[in-house]
Amino acid sequence: MTPLTAIATVEGNRRPRIRDHKAATLGLLIIVGFGTLAVLAPVITPSSVHQQAGPVFGPPSSSHPLGLDDSGADMLGLVLVGTRISMLVGLTSTAIAVLLGGAIGVLAGYFGGRVDSVLMRLTDVFLVVPILPLMIVVAALWGPSVGHAILIIGLLSWTPTARIMRSQVLATRERAFVRRAKALGAGHAGVIWHHVLPRVRGLLVANSVIVLASAIFFEAALAFLGLESVATTSWGTLIANAFNRAASSAGAWWAFVPPGACIALMVLACSLVAMSFEDAGNARVPESHIFAGRLEVVRDEQ
């Protein structure tokens, strides 16, 4: 489980409601911005992006605002191209994880009984296993490639989604409108599709932002450990290349700061969006009884 999921779980995000519009908007803008860059990358970067444009680790200049990397290629172009792969890995693996986790959670919560206990025992095992080491093991066995990274991150990131969706569906299952639909003769698929899913959709969206953040994180981690093909250009492999060529000791901060800043910005944006969702059932605004030495009761302005 990622810390973000943990924070969200501890803070309680069972029924999502936007709490902080400004933060959520800023986060969404950043995510959409990176998405746009990823789509436009082939158009705005020259085709010669991987070719040597100057000296190895050449410092930033007017023609190369982010300097040159360990092969003398333009960092700005590389970061743009890297955005494309990182966003591709992040979004596709998130889609896999959310679909898988959502399906498992809905099935377990809706049918209950034996289906529930089998699926949840499986989830419990995967929830306990340290996820990055497991990803590393599978990636090492499958061999390094972007496709493998997507599959591995997607197939191993579904557990939090499954847990959250299960508890939500469990709560929805016994609601009057679901029982009414069943009594009127609706099939399981119909009830799930028309009555259960619309109720849990918002939560699924909130949860997928968290999964996206962790997917970006894992992409960078796998790349750093050499488990994404060396020929790939992503935020993760750019950092890995800079590290392998000792950019830190060489003083070439520009070779690793930009891709890392992109990862941090992306994860930060996801955190902002995710943390703006609040449990509607827990919407009590905390009033502090003591506050910085003053006696009066102060309302939290969040």
Partner: peptide
């Protein structure tokens, strides 16, 4: 701090 990848912070 939470958003920063560990390997990158180490390099910085």
């Amino acid at each position: 701090m939470f958003a920063i990848p560990g390997q990158w912070l180490g390099m910085v």
